[in-house]
Simulated assay, not measured.
Amino acid sequence: MIDSKEYIKQHVRTVPDWPQAGIQFRDITPLLQDPKVFRALIDIFLARYANANLNYVAGLDARGFILGSVIAYELNLGFVPIRKKGKLPFHTISEEYDLEYGSATVEVHTDACKQGDRVLLVDDLIATGGTMLAGKKLLERLGAEVIEAAVIVDLPELGGSKLIEQSGLKVFTVCDFDGH
């Protein structure tokens, strides 16, 4: 019998040389397309966070929105979108970070959470860790306590999960991909 984490890993598609040569892109869309796999994936997160005493789930633009909003709904919590620069209509704070192939900026509304709120930070994948660390910094600037970073896929050879843990944030991953 296959365990649930291996079941999820088998449904992650690898797209070579995307978005540029040399990148092995880990595509989660097959997980979302199959309702049984998607349910199994969400159930992994629900089992982990059902008793975590959270106020919000924050999702990183854009695939973190898919996971985070479903997790928030199932746990009866609010959802905080952390978006790419220029996409939020109200007052925001921003954080710039480096990607494995460039740089970017993310923003959050200034009223997204408040001092003492406990927040789970969700995305689809950790590569270099820049996006997750930027999200953590934004939430902490608003006074929230980020209790854990949760993702489907970790790419440990790129060092992101190690950097996140060195920042003091625990990381939960469903599966990882070493090498190619």
Rank of each mutant, 00 (worst) to 15 (best):
Glu100Val: 12
Gly64Cys: 10
Ile152Val: 15
Gly160Glu: 14
Gly159Pro: 01
Lys114Asn: 02
Asp111Ala: 13
Thr110Cys: 07
Leu133Met: 13
Ala104Tyr: 01
Val122His: 05
Asp98Ala: 12
Thr110Leu: 12
Leu88His: 07
Pro81Lys: 04
Gly130Leu: 04
Gly102Ala: 10
Leu155Val: 12
Lys136Leu: 13
Glu107Thr: 10
Lys137Pro: 00
Leu125Ile: 13
Glu96Ile: 01
Gly143Asn: 09
Ile126Gln: 07
Ile66Pro: 05
Ala144Asp: 05
Val80Ala: 04
Gly68Ile: 01
Gly135Leu: 11
Ile126Lys: 02
Leu125Gln: 00
Gly129Lys: 03
Ile66Leu: 14
Leu155Tyr: 00
Gly130Glu: 03
Glu140Lys: 00
Thr110Glu: 14
Pro81Leu: 10
Leu99Pro: 07
Leu142Asp: 02
Asp117Asn: 15
Asp123Arg: 11
Ala72His: 12
Gly130Tyr: 03
Ile164Glu: 01
Leu142Gly: 07
Arg118Thr: 07
Tyr97Thr: 12
Tyr97Glu: 01
Gly129Cys: 06
Ala112Val: 08
Lys114Leu: 02
Phe90Glu: 10
Leu155Gln: 00
Phe90Ile: 11
His109Gln: 15
Ala150Pro: 01
Leu125Trp: 00
Ser94Asp: 11
Leu60Ala: 08
Glu74Phe: 11
Ile66Trp: 07
Ala62Met: 10
Glu95Trp: 01
Gly129Pro: 03
Val108Arg: 01
Ile126Arg: 07
Leu121Ser: 03
Glu95Phe: 00
Asp117Cys: 00
Glu165Gln: 15
Tyr97Gln: 09
